[in-house]
Design a protein around this nucleic acid. Sequence first.
RNA 1: GGGCCCAUGGUCUAGUGGCUAUGACAUCUCGUUUACACCGAGAAGGUCCCCAGUUCGAGUCUGGGUGGGCCCACCA
Length: 804
Amino acid sequence: MELPKKYSFEESEKKWAEYWKKKKVYRYDEKSEKPVFSIDTPPPTVSGNMHIGHAFSYAQGDIVARYHRMAGKNLFYPYGTDDNGLATERLVEKLKKVNSKSMKRDEFRDLCMKTLEEIKPDFTSDWVKIGVSADFEGSYSTIDNHCIKTSQKSFLDLYKKGHVYTEESPVSWCVHCQTAIAQAEFENVDMTSHFNNVIFKQGSKELVIATTRLELLPACVALFAHPDDERYKDLKGKFARVPLFDYEVPILYDENVDMEKGTGLMMVCTFGDKDDVFKWHKYKLPLKTAITIQGKMNDEAKGYEGLPIKEARKKISEDLERQGLLVSKKDITHAVNVHERCGTEIEILKTKQWFIRVLDKKQELIGAAEKIKWHPEFMKKRYVHWVENLQWDWCISRQRHFGVPFPVWYSKKTGEIILADEDQLPVDPLSDKPKTLPKGHTYEDIIPEEDVMDTWNTSSLTPQIALGWAENDSKYKKVYPMSVRMQAHDIIRTWAFYTIVKGLYNSNDIPWKNIMVSGFVLDPKGDKMSKSKGNIIMPQEVIGKYGADGLRYWAAGSKLGEDMSFQEKDVVTGKKTVTKIWNASKFTIMNLKDYNAKPLKELELKDLRVMDKWIVSKVMRAVKNATESFESYEYSRSMRETDVLFWHKFCDNYLEFVKHRTYEAKDEKSKLAAQKTLYYSLLSILKMFAPVMPFITEEVYQVYFKGVEGFESIHVSDWPSFNKKLLFEKEEKAGDLAVRVVSDIRKHKSEKGLSLKTELGRVEVSCSDEDKKLLELVVEDVKAVGNVKEFVFSKGKELTTKIN
RNA sequence: GGGCCCAUGGUCUAGUGGCUAUGACAUCUCGUUUACACCGAGAAGGUCCCCAGUUCGAGUCUGGGUGGGCCCACCA
């Protein structure tokens, strides 16, 4: 059996991806006795193409997954896509050039489903191409019936347990998407604005307040000063007149007013920010709404009705100025919360929404994080910090079309909430009817809940979805909590947090025992990638140029949790490694031509020479370290270990040291020992590389080793096990000395401009007696590699090599 | 303002208290040796950000700076 001269990753990667699929190599085995290792994978949002961050993070997760599969675990490794919610709506609106708000809900839903069908196969194929070894056949979609059912069951469960409530209250709102949104969907951006000093009249006195939000003047409900502020002490119980809108608001005092800021006198509107909400609650202020859900002024803003917020702000500014009520106007830059999906500034509007209680469970939610092992550990702090700083309960209702419907109706008569029965799920209240009606009600007396759920309400249930919680699947009982969650750090505050919430509330336990959090891919300069900057790296292009193995090698080079700037040269190194594996394998297998290989159970030590034991020892140490690193999710350490073993021990040295024993074999026993060792070392190295570079290792395995070892694929073969008996200290030391002397010889030839092949007359090594004893064991090998005629020793303290 | 992470040859980077600080890329020199020119063998290149401390010993641990990045808060 021989390997062709060149390796084509294009052909090979395609071939093995198909093979793995056909042979169902990545199937979870329900009947297996092996311990289960389960992975909670992030369902990517179907958005056209996989981006480089996906490739990075999934590759890292997959490397860990492949290790555990080889290490004897029964892998439960599901895959799904997250395709309900705003992201998908936006995509469909863009692709199909429609506006969801002007369509009927079911029409738009159908269009979304149809569009997903069209684009999903291409999208998912990217995951297959980078070698993700999940079980794609059991894929779920967060908008399929199973997920809707799971999501609705979770809702009913939480409702019954008292974790869900609905109320009309001030909630963050996106006027562009026209829906409520959650705190986790905020993004902070710096914006330029104006800090305006505006005159309020108090009798004949002029009071100046500072504001950036002039359009909220008609929503002003009070003025506030600090109780100790001398300037405003005599205003107690007085009222001020709102400019332009000409009505009076009370002047009140609160400790948290900052005397230094602005004029020390502030206006409270319903609602400009969270602090307004706070004071509105605390002082039971009236509600005066000036902005509609579409982001236009309503008739509270007399004279400005129908104007969009920013235009109203401008016009009010002009009108104030004209009337001499604008004292000053200063340009400022300040941080503003915007909706991450569309960049629109967030408003606070009083609307009816559904919430999941989290503020009253902060301690439990932080306690859960303590029970989970975080990799790397410091990522836990991000979670804890987020939970500690939560300000709102989780708002889960969205005034959108494409999402999981609430399994809820209302009574027109009494307003009471009517829940769906669990056994009628999945349910769409717009078309379905409740199984049980309240007393004295007919179907005519009920109206459906029209809102849909936040997409995170469903994707936070990935463990329950994958394990069949809603179906009372035995798998759920057996596997939950899952072994590990893999994800990137940007969604700790959403996906990780929400999944833990659902785990505690629905399943009474943490969702997984471990979480591995990967970093971010930055552009070559270390900046964030973004479409607007035009610095996006497409993984498809990288794969096309260097192959999936090359890309995975690159992804494996970064420590877990660490951001990494994309350097093309690192992918080149990956591709070089692939080529090197190919060439080294080709050479090794060539040397095994007449070797009668048997399945490798335990290496037979009989007849092994010193250099053989040297490489076996090196393999063993690498196996030990790589295994330990993998067990603690440190795949980059593990790969480095294998890398050093392969390049510097196996290729640079061992292969050179055995050539003289296999080429013109004078000693059959020695040749056989070398072959045995070659077989053992190469197979071990291939296995150790297999999680990182699944394609090239499979190629070599299939061509040669499969016929001997018998496993369907290298990826279901067993991970090399550490065996203390295969550590040979003396031989290792001797081999290290041989390598050192050979290195001196190479250096000499290089400095003299000689070919490495040049024969040397005499090499004299001066060293201690101890080293001499060891070196004598490998003299023949050193002579062969260095092409040395005569080799002599002399006594010396330090090991030095003299050549003439 | 709070929290977290980071700082190592030109660039990126390993380094979990212990000989001369790791590797890759780039640079230079040599070598077409029958696994590999998508190569190999070498060379040069470092105040391990600064200060103080702990220690027999610090790139590594502690404290304090400086600089960079990320997250959160700040929106009157």
